[in-house]
Nucleic acid binder design. Structure first.
Lengths: 218, 218
DNA sequence: CTTGACATGTGACACACTGTCAGTATAAAA
DNA sequence: TTTTATACTGACAGTGTGTCACATGTCAAG
């Protein structure tokens, strides 16, 4: 009754240029899909090349035709995730007009994407600590958001919608909070309810950036 | 001119009951110290039992007399760190009177302790993703702070010093931000300046908890 | 001291996983 | 079909782990 409906979801070929995927493309997609399925029910540490490949039609050695190692594979998943997140974050990053609704829209999109692909997020961040190369990619991924948020804060500080303070450390703080919270909430089953997570994140962002605070100095 | 001044810093025996440490205690302390030294200049992933023990006076197998594996050793370091942090966090958790200065004192202490022992923090959080047992300990460690912060928020919401909202998710968000930021800032050399980190953390905590926000609803 | 008993440490082993390579099978092109 | 390039495989060596029987060290009682 059911069949694997997402096997080719990773190819994302441009419809116009569609053509029969070659054997190599199919095997590669099969491996990626197997990894993805795995991450929905197991942590990264339990993944081995042998185990992964035995859930595909190819033997263990075939893995090395497509990926250097498990971290390389994981990096591929990260790239897809980054694209997805960047897309939903656009409103606040680039939108015009009242920034508060834009921020809320972006945070809502972020939570939605991470709810849908939480295990990828968790797998990547787990894997990153064990591999220098992937760790750099992961840090780069985070740093790109840090940069974008910093720029946006500074731009809005210039026009007075955000109070004056050193933008980057606050941007980093907010982004790290997002990442840690989203991983914890949606990284593995059972996932938490998205709404309270969104509410908490929104509260912290909004009060940090858009509330007229009366912070007494030291 | 210099000598290893901290070799026995891990024993922490009660001064009154001091007595000559047995051979086993000395070896154990030597291993812990070697690990600590290691973490100041290398990430957890580069630690192996063989490498660790070859920087001590004992052979590789002796390691297993004292620890189950590297995660067990790392757990020992976590326990010491938790004690240190709990101590400096007391003011806001338990103090009486105007909560804002208490919070600032606690956050200041937190940043100071983590600046001093950042590599431990990073080593533990790195190691945790690779080992189920240590991961549980680490989550427990975080959860204890979540609980304490949640309780404190709710108590102050009851007396009106903090606005009404669901306390736990916000507590979790703030704690995860702290952890991620402190690890990133102080987890490995070169460490960042403590002051901007403290400022950013303080800003987020204070504006989230103690500023009269005018958050427009959705 | 010397002895004995217990505490501490060791070398050698089996295991699991990794990454490589020469050679084979299979798919695609001619 | 034949040819050629591509995809795949099994066997191997390497690295690190954890365990075991045995060796060595320590220290108190005789």
């Amino acid at each position: 009754m059911s069949f694997n409906s997402t096997t080719n979801s990773l190819l994302k070929s441009i419809p116009a240029l569609e053509r029969k995927p070659t054997k190599a493309e199919r095997t590669r997609a099969e491996i990626l899909q197997a990894a993805l399925d795995f991450f929905w029910s197991h942590p990264f540490r339990e993944l081995t090349i042998g185990g992964l490949m035995s859930s595909t039609s190819a033997g263990r050695s075939a893995f090395y035709q497509y990926f250097e190692d498990l971290y390389d594979l994981t990096e591929t998943l990260l790239r897809g995730l980054e694209a997805g997140i960047l897309e939903v974050a656009t409103p606040w990053f680039e939108g015009e007009g009242d920034p508060l609704p834009l921020l809320k829209e972006s945070l809502g999109g972020l939570v939605r994407v991470c709810y849908e692909r939480g295990p990828i997020l968790k797998a990547v961040s787990d894997a990153a600590v064990s591999d220098e190369r992937l760790e750099k990619e992961w840090n780069g991924f985070l740093a790109r958001f840090d940069g974008a948020v910093t720029a946006r804060i500074e731009q809005q500080q210039a026009v007075g919608s955000i109070p004056a303070f050193e933008a980057r450390p606050v941007a980093v703080a907010l982004n790290r909070m997002d990442a840690a919270l989203l991983i914890e909430a949606f990284g593995s089953r059972p996932r938490r309810q998205p709404q309270p997570v969104l509410d908490a994140i929104t509260r912290v962002w909004v009060s940090t950036l858009y509330s007229q605070t009366t912070q007494r100095s030291q």
